[in-house]
């Protein structure tokens, strides 16, 4: 499959259908996101690595794709995207953080092993070009265990887990959906300055609530956490609550707006 993707990208670059390809490249230090502008460079393209391609750059708080688009507005950009990458692109585009104009999404499905490693509920993109999507979603055994715990034990679990927090803001910095210029995890209103570990559970609750209808379930927060706090569990359960209540899943569809940020049919101010 990798050879197919490489060939597709090379042909597109040679035929000037694309000016740049964005994907995961193999480096000495391991796979990392990079841009490819020539056919030779594409020999380094790989389909490994778990980090999403789409991330927010600091300190500009701009998305990496948006920054590239700004520098070369007319360039035709191909993105070798997995399910999580595409969800990030769609959701950011809906929230006016980047434009999908002039971007070709080269969708690649993850295999069973990758999906299980990421505990990914949707390991394939909508614009699927290569690979076959898994027909059975991967379960999250940890989340199921958490849901079975009685309330008091769940509270004790989080009290312990969140007390490990060193307030490094890694979860927020790694999150492709955390693009706010002013972050309430830093504001003094809800998060007292100097408290270490941060106040339970307000600090993490701020991010959880803000990401309720945004979280694309890429697992970056958990991967970034140096203290191994299972941050994804809470976001995952809120994501499925949004799906059950409103039929909305962040990033799955490029046009449907979030129910929390829009007025729906039947609501009083909805114009037919």
């Amino acid at each position: 499959m990798l050879e197919q993707v490489r060939r597709h990208c090379k042909e597109a670059l040679d035929a000037k259908r694309l000016d740049l390809v964005y994907g995961v490249g193999n480096r000495k230090a391991g796979p990392a996101p990079r841009f490819f502008s020539t056919a030779e460079e594409l020999d380094e393209l790989v389909l490994a690595g778990k980090e999403p391609l789409v991330f927010t750059c600091r300190p500009s708080d701009r998305n990496v794709v948006d920054l590239v688009r700004e520098r070369s507005p007319t360039a035709k950009l191909g993105i070798v995207a997995r399910g999580c990458d595409e969800r990030a692109l769609f959701e950011l585009a809906k929230r006016f953080q980047l434009s999908l104009d002039g971007i070709e999404i080269i969708g690649v499905a993850c295999d069973q092993a990758q999906a299980e490693e990421c505990r990914c509920p949707r390991p394939y993109p909508k614009n699927l070009a290569f690979g076959t999507p898994l027909d059975k979603p991967v379960d999250d055994p940890v989340l199921e265990k958490l849901q079975r715990l009685p309330l008091e034990e769940r509270l004790a679990f989080w009290r312990y887990q969140l007390s490990k927090c060193v307030k490094c803001y890694g979860c927020r910095n790694a999150c492709p959906m955390c693009f706010c210029k002013e972050c309430q995890m830093e504001g003094e209103l809800f998060v007292p300055r100097g408290a270490q570990p941060p106040e339970f559970p307000t600090f993490h609750f701020v991010q959880l609530i803000h990401l309720a209808d945004r979280c694309i379930d890429c697992g970056e927060c958990e991967r970034a956490c140096p203290m191994d706090i299972p941050l994804r569990l809470l976001k995952k359960s809120l994501r499925s609550e949004v799906r059950e209540r409103f039929g909305y899943e962040a990033g799955v569809d490029p046009t449907t707006a979030s129910p929390l940020g829009s007025i729906e049919r039947g609501e009083p101010s909805h114009a037919e």
Partner: peptide, 18 residues
């Protein structure tokens, strides 16, 4: 309408926190 959509999500978040 926004409140009606938001508060059930809050309740779910609290439940998951214990």
């Amino acid at each position: 309408w926004q409140t009606e959509k938001r508060i059930p999500l809050l309740r779910k978040a609290l439940e998951m926190l214990g």
